[in-house]
Design a protein around this nucleic acid. Structure first.
Length: 771
RNA sequence: GCCAAGGUGAUGGAAUUGGUAGACAUACAGGACUUAAAAUCCUGAGAGGGCCUAAAAACCCUCAUGUGGGUUCGAGUCCCACCCUUGGUACCA
């Protein structure tokens, strides 16, 4: 490791590089200790970085720390430590651990998200988004975690509970900063079509964006000017709409002149107190009729009742639906419970109740007899509606009422209008005189210094923004900063971005598919539109790695007591054995889950010892062993992130090496060169023993052109079943192959004197005789 | 429910565009070395059967990649239906 450090094995000169390859792995949160998941993430990507360097690429393989976030703040609250000191100490420890696994990161490009020299540019980019209307303030009901005393993003809520601590989420109304990711919904979808990512990842993003084609229809309220605007994907069923439902939070609920105001208000209050989880858990369709209020069905002109019910979400569509109980399951249930009429307007399906598929329209005026799918879009116009596209994706809420995050670079004038903090005042430093204890108020509000700073710079009556940014903002652009990490004048370098972006390959966890990965894509597209970056899509290839499970096949967790500490294995078997084991455990190009096998690590140690014995026994006049085929195979498997079969190929080669008492130093060196990405320490050691010059990690990959063998085995089948084989030139003609095949005893007996009526011949591979 | 990815020996897994299923390992069994063990090395092995045998090797056959069909000279791979597992997602109108 010292040798590599002095040789600067991992460092790359971005400007002079001629064959650039940008290999990126998600930068870690500095939690303190490296677990097996970290090893899996960093050791295997390191293998590919090393391999590519040996194969002549100029590889950028950077590392940094996603260093803002809750754990530091929680440590501050719990143990009274300074979040910054806590974080920096963890970073120092993780740096040493990352080096100890034998990684070859380019540390000269390191970025740390909580360092002012980094977050200065997070802030600057935010002000650019603000100036172009992509960062906006909105009043909105937000999800609130009562334990963390903070607002949560939708993405941080799992089953209505806080992702971090499982506390049931509450709702609050606050003014928050949002990034307008919804403006990019369509382009984020389109971009997926051109990316060569696994379908799995693309589908998850598509589902998250949740595009649906439909229409806005309007239901007038007689006696008022008001109209209820609904979103529907089934305008073809409008003749079957027998009532209208408003979400409890819908603006009209409080405004309309209802006869049973007290009852309605009580219902709204009761549902407002419920968490979304409770609402969805209780599948019973509760609701209250707005007495004295009706809506006009724009197709039938009938007056139909209006309800408020919590099965309608205010956050999707318009917060109001036209209910068609005959053709929607939820409406059907609600209608049954409240004894509302069910009117069938689409014929189709048998035994379905309700029937939700397409079919022939009935009871639909002049549209009767038409196919629902055909008539759908024409009917919108007829009822005065408009065609529209709705997305499930919501704007990205980035405000956090927390301390340990990037301060939002905004100040408010005496009238309360937001202004971006001018570039000359960036970085807008996180104040240090704050009270961390959660009080329901943002911690920054307790800083005297921050208020004084705003008054001094902007004047009396000006006030600071107290919220900090979601850490996903920090991680949405870090890969551009790696190209120019120390620049005090710009967030990155245009020339270098043109040369190095998009990232060639991005490796990370599948848990980031719909959050980080989508945010980073949005950021790139927005910055592209502002002419700040040269590419629209940040990542050319994306690989989601799998999960390493405990020895019991269960996910490792403290509560299950099956957490394995990599340090123990490193101490016992060495970093190389752990690396090779992780490579061998399963394919890295798909997100599977692999149980840790204690014997497995030990067996990798044995493999490495066998390699060492082989190399130590190598002599100048030993046997030459063909290595070209293995060199091609290992390289190809590396390109596919299939390190398991790459290692297997090396094991196979070692087996054939061991058939010789001594192999030549030349062959041994070729082997060691190929082992180097996987077991870099042992390879370097053996390289020196074999008298190699410099570092094995600076050698080039062994020759991998395989000479075409003169004779290859061709399998002979009779009626598709293997009945023998013969050695044949790949260039042999079919007639020659047929003649040779027939002369084999086992074939002759299988043919039993019958002349094949057909022959299928694949040169160099197979000949099939059909009788 | 919907979407996606999967289902191959005891286990992890392998198998270019359809072309020798089970590479490479682990575990297991037997053997060598050892007083013994560990380590190391060698050998065996999908299931069942046949032939020849004192016994074995070699050889041969049948079946076998979740289940049932289909396409094809040939299917783990392609198509249809179903079952199961994992992941994502959900009163999304």
């Amino acid at each position: 490791q010292e040798k590599w450090a002095s040789l600067k094995i991992g460092e790359i000169d971005l400007e002079t590089a001629t064959d650039p390859y940008y290999l990126l792995v998600e930068f870690p949160y500095p939690s303190g200790d490296l677990h097996i998941g970290h090893w899996y993430a960093f050791a295997l990507t390191d293998m590919y970085a090393r391999m590519l360097r040996q194969r002549g690429k100029d590889v950028l393989f950077p590392i940094g720390f996603d260093a803002f976030g809750l754990p530091a703040e929680n440590a501050a609250i719990k143990h009274g430590v300074d979040p910054k000191e806590w974080t920096m100490a963890n970073i120092e420890r993780m740096r040493r651990q990352l080096m100890s696994m034998g990684s070859s990161f380019d540390w000269s490009k390191e970025v740390i998200a909580c360092d002012p020299s980094y977050y200065q540019w997070t802030q600057w980019l935010f002000t650019k988004l603000f100036e172009h209307g992509l960062a906006v303030r909105k009043t909105a009901p937000v999800k609130w975690c009562p334990k963390d005393q903070t607002v949560l993003a939708n993405e941080q809520i799992i089953d209505g509970k806080c992702e971090r601590d499982g506390t049931p989420v509450e709702e609050r109304i606050l003014t928050q900063w949002f990034l307008k990711i919804t403006d990019y919904a369509e382009r984020l979808l389109e971009g997926l079509n051109t990316l060569p990512w696994r379908e799995e990842i693309k589908e998850a993003q598509r589902a998250w964006i949740g595009k649906s084609e439909g229409a806005f229809l309007y239901f007038a309220i007689p006696g008022t000017e008001a109209k209820i605007k609904v979103f529907t994907t089934r305008p073809d069923t409008v003749f079957g709409a027998t009532y209208v439902v408003l979400a409890p939070e819908h603006a009209l609920v409080g405004v309309l002149d209802v006869e049973n105001r007290a009852e309605v208000d009580a219902y709204v209050t009761a549902t407002g107190r419920k968490t979304e989880r409770e609402r969805s858990e209780n599948k019973e369709k509760t609701g209250v009729r707005l007495k004295g209020v009706t809506a006009t069905n724009p197709a039938t002109n009938e007056e139909i009742p209006v309800f408020v019910a919590d099965y309608v979400l205010n956050t999707y569509g318009t917060g109001a639906v036209m209910a068609v109980p005959a053709h929607d399951e939820r409406d059907f249930e609600f209608a049954k419970r409240h004894k509302l009429p069910v009117r069938i307007v689409v014929e189709g399906g048998v035994g379905h109740d309700p029937y939700t598929g397409p079919g022939t329209l009935i009871e639909s005026g002049t549209w009767s007899g038409r196919q629902s799918e055909d008539a759908k879009w024409e009917m919108i116009e007829h009822v005065g509606g408009e065609r529209t596209t709705n997305y499930r994706l919501r704007d990205w809420l980035v405000s956090r009422q927390r301390y340990w995050g990037c301060p939002i670079p905004i100040v408010y004038d005496p009238e309360g209008r937001p202004h971006p903090i001018p570039a000359e005042h960036l970085p807008w430093l996180l104040p240090t005189d704050v009270d961390f204890k959660p009080s329901g108020e943002a911690p920054l509000a307790s800083s005297k210094e921050l208020k004084e700073r705003v008054t001094r710079i902007f004047g009396e009556g000006w006030t600071p923004e107290y919220d900090t940014l979601d850490t996903f903002v920090d991680s949405s652009w870090y890969f551009t900063r790696y190209l120019d990490p120390k620049d005090a004048n710009q967030f990155s370098d245009q020339t270098l971005m043109k040369k190095w972006l998009p990232v060639n390959r991005y490796s990370g966890g599948s848990e980031h598919t719909t959050m980080h990965l989508l945010y980073a894509r949005f950021f790139m597209k927005a910055l592209y539109d502002l002419a700040l970056v040269p590419v629209e899509e940040p990542f050319e290839e994306r690989f989601n790695r799998g999960l390493i499970m405990g020895t019991d096949g269960q996910k490792m967790s403290k509560s299950k007591g099956n957490v394995l500490n990599p340090d123990e294995f490193v101490a016992k078997f060495g970093a190389d054995a752990v690396r090779v084991y992780l490579a061998f455990i399963g394919p890295y190009n798909e997100p599977g889950s692999y149980p840790w096998n204690l014997d497995g690590v030990a067996s990798m140690r044995k493999f490495l010892e066998r390699v060492a014995r082989m190399a130590e026994n190598a002599t100048a006049d030993g046997s030459d062993v063909a290595t070209a085929q293995t060199a091609a195979k290992v390289a190809e498997d590396g390109d596919r992130f299939k390190f398991n079969t790459g290692v297997a190929a090396l094991m196979t080669l070692l087996n054939s090496f061991e058939e010789h008492e001594h192999v030549s130093i030349r062959s041994a060196r070729a082997f060691i060169t190929m082992l180097a990405p996987f077991a870099p320490h042992l390879a370097e050691h053996l390289w020196e023993k074999l008298g190699g010059e410099g570092s094995v990690h600076r050698t080039s990959w062994p020759e991998s052109t395989v000479e075409q063998a003169e004779l290859v085995e061709v399998v002979v089948q009779v009626n598709g079943k293997r009945r023998g084989s013969l050695m044949l030139s790949p260039a042999a003609a079919e007639s020659e192959a047929l003649l040779a095949a027939k002369s084999i005893a086992s074939i002759a007996s299988a043919l039993d004197g019958t002349e094949p009526r057909r022959t299928v011949y694949v040169p160099g591979r197979i000949i099939n005789l059909v009788i």
